[in-house]
Amino acid sequence: MMSKIRDFFNQGGLLLFALGRILAGIPIIIALTVLVFMATQALPGDAAVSYLANTATPERLAAIREQLNLDDPLWVQYFSWASDALRLDFGMTLTGETSVSAILGERIQNTLILMASSGIIAIPLSIVIGTYAAVRRGKIFDNVSSLVTLVLASLPEFVVAIFVVFLLATNIFQIFPAISFVEPGTLAWADPMSLVLPSLTLILAVTPYVSRIMRGSMIEVMESEYIQMARLKGLSERTVILRHALPNAIAPTIQVIALQLAWLAGGVVVVEAVFAYPGIGTVMIDSVKARDLPIVQAITLMIAALYVVLNILADIGTILSTPRLRTKHARKNDTSDVFAAMDGDQ
């Protein structure tokens, strides 16, 4: 792995490629701001009307419109919002007490902690399950894991969450807290117990997809000729799987892992709500209820941006883990002598 990372930075071509992908991400993010902005504009009435709802008086409407610059032309509104948003300044909440960034700052960290703790467990776990199921194809482990992952994949995550609470927090065992109470002003890892059930729910939601893809990819690799060749060299099955099969099977799985991680960012909203976990998910739901548009916009934009970032990372990861692609994007002088060698063979 270290040598791969070293290669990566030695090869200017790859760095250029990565830079290209990041640059290509910028217009996508800008397009996202337009979409998010348009979506909130499409709601009936303006932000002020929907926020104040029954309590609207002409004076209060005017005040909020003033605060949000709702009387400006649309494009002026968009540019002032978008340019602030790109600097991570999402303005003030409609309650007018704090800035959106101040509310979200701590919450984002909590959500990232939750996503990271789920991802760190779910990804290696699914790789192990997928690999083992592929190796033991058609045996008990494969059949059972296929069935379990299929069931889990078809259940909505809130059902899984409720089941987890039922099993581990309330009715059967009472080991973990059913509600993740985190003191305001502290981060989630101050109380690791509160992380367990939300993470477990997310792990159960993500693992089925990734492990099934991993299993399929691994089965395909295990049937390739180079695996047969490795066996005919007399290598132990362990070496065949770990050295010859696994690295080749992981590359196609990376894209799915990235999509699943991105999905986590959305899935987290529901899961946080079930456990009352103080992340962006709960804020999102509260803000939707309160029709606090600046917060909704900020969170939507961040989740969408996360998709873009993870996809860029997945592309780079795929290239790093596939020598054929890695060398293609490497500097020219690394491949030029290959053609000379080919001529020598004729």
Binding site: S224, H244, T322
Partner: peptide, 12 residues
Amino acid sequence: PQDPGTALNPGL
């Protein structure tokens, strides 16, 4: 092997 293109491990 018949076809070294598929019988050599592409990742090693």
